[in-house]
Design a protein around this nucleic acid. Structure first.
Lengths: 194, 194
DNA sequence: TTCTCCATGTAAGTAGTTACATGATTGG
DNA sequence: CCAATCATGTAACTACTTACATGGAGAA
């Protein structure tokens, strides 16, 4: 879909991957170094995306080569650091990625829910323990999400409203899991039903 | 954590992975062939797990070698088929996997939400289109989940209650996403706020 | 006969991870 | 001076995917 023809003197884009666009988007939002990108990911999109430190630096290299960001050495004292900023081309490439219409798959991959699904293989007491663990996990996630609400609010005040939206989705859906767990626990306690 | 000491004459288990346990669990629930396992995964845990056809057969091989399932040739006419059943050892191994206490990470990985997070880079109209796409996607998932409610009900009637629970979680959390989207769309239509 | 479903397989590739390694700066 | 944080990198691995391939069975 991305036409990689070389209209200018730069390298043709080598089919950027989703993690590349995450890095690009974070640079756009003001993350300057690879280290800072990692931090921002942890503080914002962590509940629906992760990126390992290892893949950030090669990604920055590709983006710079493609002219989507510019990098400049910017040491802090004697500690080396490379500071990046997005270019006009980069802004356009990001918009193009965001805008493309192709269907967006939703693929969750969670061993916790898998284990819960198979919980009938356990004695009832142990199955309920597992249920508690799953509920607790979402409660923890919920707390973590509430803790970053302030940064999403700050982003909104700067004109970026969508980080707050995705945060609210995270809150909403972990709350939904907790609700289902509690509802189920109640039903288990009073088994007057069929 | 899994102690792979060989107490009997069989192969020591070569550290089974999560997909292996998914296959094992599906055999326990009555899936006989690799083909049927794939089908069952699609009809039950699909919203929080996928497995590709390719990885099922090697997995069945490992499980059989480890003595967790037994396989027998069971052709349908001249079409070959291998039918599997779980063993006592397999039941125990599954229970052990389900029961272990170690923290269960929750790692979602969804480009859709990532794109929504960065949507402020788009002109407002296009950002709202993206929001609509995300909402629609959850509505579709919701419909798909409601369509498999009958099999979860059937499982419950056979004594397996947890498939219904995880299904309700899927329903709950896609509903939560839809709710947040609609709430946000309302706010965008009437921007009387700060 | 043709289409859909049943049933299994191989080969090649990429995306991503964990583990390890290094060293400077800042704050207590 | 010690711990936490800042900042980047390398090497080895494993999990998983896509694409391709084959062919029988049953229904229209």
């Amino acid at each position: 879909m991305t036409d990689a023809s070389s209209q200018d003197g730069r390298q043709a884009l080598p089919e950027l991957t989703a993690p590349d666009y995450v890095v690009l988007g974070m640079v756009r939002l003001g993350a300057r170094s690879g280290y800072e990108i990692k931090q921002r990911v942890e503080r914002s999109i962590r509940f629906f995306w992760t990126i390992s430190q290892v893949q950030i630096y090669p990604s920055l290299g590709r983006l710079e080569q493609a002219g989507l960001i510019t990098g400049a050495d910017d040491p802090q004292g004697r500690r080396p650091r490379r500071a990046y900023a997005i270019t006009g081309t980069g802004e356009a490439a990001l918009r193009q990625w965001l805008h493309q219409a192709e269907p967006i798959p939703f693929e969750l991959r969670d061993t916790g829910l898998v284990r819960l699904f198979f919980a009938d293989a356990l004695p009832p007491g142990e199955a309920r323990e597992l249920l508690t663990v799953i509920k607790q996990r979402s409660q923890d996630k919920l707390a973590a999400l509430r803790a970053i609400e302030s940064s999403a609010d700050a982003a909104r005040d700067k004109g970026d409203i969508y980080p707050l939206l995705t945060l609210q989705m995270g809150i909403g859906f972990h709350q939904a899991i907790i609700d289902v767990c509690q509802d189920f626990e109640r039903k288990l306690r009073e088994p007057y039903r069929v």
